[in-house]
Design a protein around this nucleic acid. Sequence first.
DNA 1: TTGTATGCGTTATCAT
DNA 2: ATGATAACGCATACAA
Lengths: 348, 348
Amino acid sequence: MARSRASATMKDVARAAGVSLKTVSNVVNGYPYLSPATKARVEEAISSLGYRVNVTARNLRQGSTGLIKLVVPELRIPYFGELADSVVEAAGRRGLTVLLQQHRYDREAELGVLRSDGGSQVDGVLFSPVHVGQADAEAFRVDFPLVILGESIFGAPCDHVSMRNIEGGRAQVEHLLGLGRRRIAIIGLSDVPDVSSSRLRHKGAVAALEAAGVALDPALVAGPGPWVRPVGARLMADLLDSGARPDGVVCYNDALALGAVHELSRRGVRVPDDIAVIGFDNVEETNYSWPPISTIDPGRETIAAAAVAMLVERIGLEQSFDPSTGPRELLVDFRLVARQSTLGATGG
Amino acid sequence: MARSRASATMKDVARAAGVSLKTVSNVVNGYPYLSPATKARVEEAISSLGYRVNVTARNLRQGSTGLIKLVVPELRIPYFGELADSVVEAAGRRGLTVLLQQHRYDREAELGVLRSDGGSQVDGVLFSPVHVGQADAEAFRVDFPLVILGESIFGAPCDHVSMRNIEGGRAQVEHLLGLGRRRIAIIGLSDVPDVSSSRLRHKGAVAALEAAGVALDPALVAGPGPWVRPVGARLMADLLDSGARPDGVVCYNDALALGAVHELSRRGVRVPDDIAVIGFDNVEETNYSWPPISTIDPGRETIAAAAVAMLVERIGLEQSFDPSTGPRELLVDFRLVARQSTLGATGG
DNA sequence: TTGTATGCGTTATCAT
DNA sequence: ATGATAACGCATACAA
């Protein structure tokens, strides 16, 4: 028997079961006050007709979609792949489905997210911006639920989940200093003047050096450039070619660290014997590179769960939440993960 | 002035502009035959009211959502992160938005995708199954547009895009043989009896060995286990601990290869001098590990674009496509990417 | 070139 | 416990 292409509606089910539309709706939505007989009859009709609720119609009627949008630079960057994984997971636990968008570091694309139609078709948006920042604060005043993820835009007129970037940068440097390194190079300093992850981490790093009375050699600071592996490799190469001889390298993300370690290995420079390297993000890959790379774990799952929780409150799915609450800022704690790229062989 | 929370509808715009609903609709949808005056008046009203089309209502009316669903094991696996990236990109080029779902290798979750409501709220589904395969062929007979991605289920009652797994496995082995390796180990042989990537790649690998008259030592075949880095490391360790002394290792995906190389490096085994290693997938990470790992490039972008194109045809967005077309199977070409894990240092 | 009327499939408000 | 009927916001025959 050929399956009919157009699917059955509630009306069809109602007719087949000899009940009204409302009754079918009641059955479908688990309304408790139903006579077992009617319920059975309706369920019978549903399965025999292969009826499924039309989610779009339900959405129209209820004014919500059960969808949230996640906007990241690009999924092929391991950090964002892992972040998306955690967000999809956290959203799923709350019955929400995630719709994905990539902005590929394009400022216009990022601004588009904040335009009024950026929230259409979804109940809310999680946004991980790169080139839209402090200077655009007002653009974040949108009329749909929005939570900023991972970037630090202070005083933005919307909720915001991030990690303690300053303290993270400080911890990176303190770790190397604690291991006796003194000629510390830095890879990943951005040239954007506002409050980016890069500037914050750098702020912490500089503070740690100053606190220890160690001078930061400007010749040992490399950047800017996208935070991807090839750039890490190139910046490391440039440093070495310029005659710089660091004994420790702080990279402001793991991709840069992976590129840097790659370049060092290629040149036969021993890590960490000659140069210790520490990254930032704790992507899975750092644990399986050789040597495994020390890094800062920003608590990706915690960030994702917190961001989804905040968004859910803004959407209005939590009774206990006061909608007049002002913009909130949550800074998640991190931890330093020490591996062989700084510690050396550990009696494997 | 406080922005009203409930957004304006076409009716509001029509009233404000002193025209009918239909006219507003015409303006919004770019209907060409409009007097410039009316058009201007409507646009004025639209912007002053901050009107945005209600996508849900439009979807209900038009019977489609502009959404497709991508189901993968998990996004934190680099291969699937990169695949999702390409799918989102390809979908975007066709005006479709991607909704994400993870099945985390859970068979029930995979079967759920194929249940009748798996396609609700979306126009079509791209599905990358793992534990649902040949034996479940009939389950793939669903009443929504569906394209299987990357897994080889032959004769399934739906479209299917994959790569030439058998030839890929053969190419891996031939590459090692061509470099003079004879004691070839294999990592990643699955124990599922049906047509999985693993079995197909293995089939090609075995064929290549036989064709060359090289015996495959059963003691050199490792598996099963999830295709992730720690498993690659463990299987490599087990091989070495068992006293096996391969001079080449074929891994059926890159994560296994990365784990294996990691373990070899940890033990001070030289790659490729002592043991050459080749992976499969060409994830970006293989190019930045040390040494860079030779691999098979399955043409991820091509696969994604082809899968989206097929899905678009099934959805009915292509006039030229005959909807009565039977299930199609597309095998994308691959290429071998030779790097230092098999070639050795190349005069860096 | 523009307006009127109807329906997409569902849920909600009243009834009974 | 169930039914009749009216929205939700939009697009489209059809009419003018």
